[in-house]
């Protein structure tokens, strides 16, 4: 049982990082970057490609993460900002980020070929025994990184000036701009952080999945579902959703049957969306919502999403 939980935690940590990448961008800009999964893929492919031609592994990793961060920012300038300028409330960015996702996956397949390539093993071959279960340092690294990112982000958001301005922009972008916050700078930072988180997730999961240009789809959707489960209004909630998704997938696989991880997450996400549409860990306790305050406070939260 503990083995299952631990393995689910490791998988969930990666999902959580991707979900946080989605969430940070959404938090500040109210846009969902559908190319987030592909940013994970960019980092994986870069590391795989560079290390294959002899570049030292640590340098490849730096390059990979730098590239995913850079692409994140590029997506803002190329696909999101122009669309938002024309129409703040429409969903044009949905189509444009999806367009970017398709382009990234196809170009990666053109450069690297469509089949999986090797990825440096990193810490994957070093196993450790914990409380009678066996796992690898790579997976524990994923859990540690996820925890650090979560704590760091929350501290940053609530304790520093940067973070508080970020919250203000998230709540009411026009007001915040009116009092001097540079919404564009924050948007760029948000997209950069999103790319960074996705890139890190890629490095963590690469040794296990190998490097494949179509990984963006798989992890993008997994991260997105984790986001829906955890909550779309706060990045920390997204991490919670990721961990929950990871654990539930492995549990389903182990105790139901080996195909359960396909449909079980959907059952969960549908249930969550019906009971608590803003996510399980969204602001406002789940129980308070349950007790009937839900409708009205949900209505209040909506304008933030609409605009």
């Amino acid at each position: 049982m503990l083995q299952v939980l631990l393995s689910g935690l490791a998988t969930g940590a990666v999902y959580g990082l991707v979900a946080m990448a989605f969430a940070v961008v959404f938090y500040v800009t109210k846009v969902i970057n559908f190319a987030t999964g592909q940013l994970l893929m960019v980092s994986i492919m870069t590391v795989s490609g560079l290390s294959a031609i002899g570049v030292p592994v640590w340098l490849s990793i730096v390059a990979g993460i730098a590239l995913s961060t850079g692409f994140g920012v590029a997506i803002y300038y190329g696909a999101v900002a122009p669309v938002l300028k024309v129409d703040r409330t429409g969903f044009g960015w949905l189509v444009s980020t999806l367009g970017v996702a398709i382009v990234l996956a196809s170009v990666a397949a053109m450069i690297f070929g469509p089949t999986s390539r090797a990825f440096p093993a990193l810490l994957y071959h070093h196993s450790i025994r914990l409380f009678g279960t066996s796992t690898t340092w790579q997976e524990m690294l994923a859990v540690i990184v996820a925890a650090v990112v979560l704590v760091a982000f929350e501290v940053f958001r609530t304790r520093t000036l940067f973070g508080k301005v970020g919250m203000a922009i998230s709540g009411d972008p026009e007001m915040a701009t009116a009092v001097g916050a540079n919404a564009t700078a924050y948007a760029v930072i948000a997209f950069a952080i999103g790319g960074l988180l996705a890139g890190v997730a890629g490095v963590l999961v690469g040794p296990i999945t190998f490097a494949n240009p179509y990984l963006g789809d798989t992890y993008g959707i997994a991260g997105f579902i984790a986001l829906m489960i955890g909550g779309i209004d706060k990045p920390a909630a997204a991490m919670g959703g990721g961990v929950l998704l990871g654990v539930l997938s492995v549990v389903a696989n182990t105790y139901i049957n080996s195909q359960a991880s396909d449909w079980f997450p959907f059952v969960v996400v549908v249930a969550v969306l019906l009971i608590a549409p803003h996510g399980l860990f969204a602001s406002g306790n789940l129980f308070a919502r349950w007790l009937g305050r839900g409708r009205r406070s949900a209505e209040l939260a909506l304008p933030a999403v609409r605009s």
């Binding site: 696909a79 669309v83 444009s96 970017v100 996702a101 196809s106 053109m110």
Partner: peptide, 22 residues
């Protein structure tokens, strides 16, 4: 043409249409 190039061009067209001609 090559399906991968085709996909890439397709994605690019989505992108351009939305950004330039909403």
């Amino acid at each position: 043409i090559d399906p991968l190039v085709q996909e890439a061009i397709f994605g690019l067209i989505f992108l351009l249409v939305i950004v330039l001609f909403p």
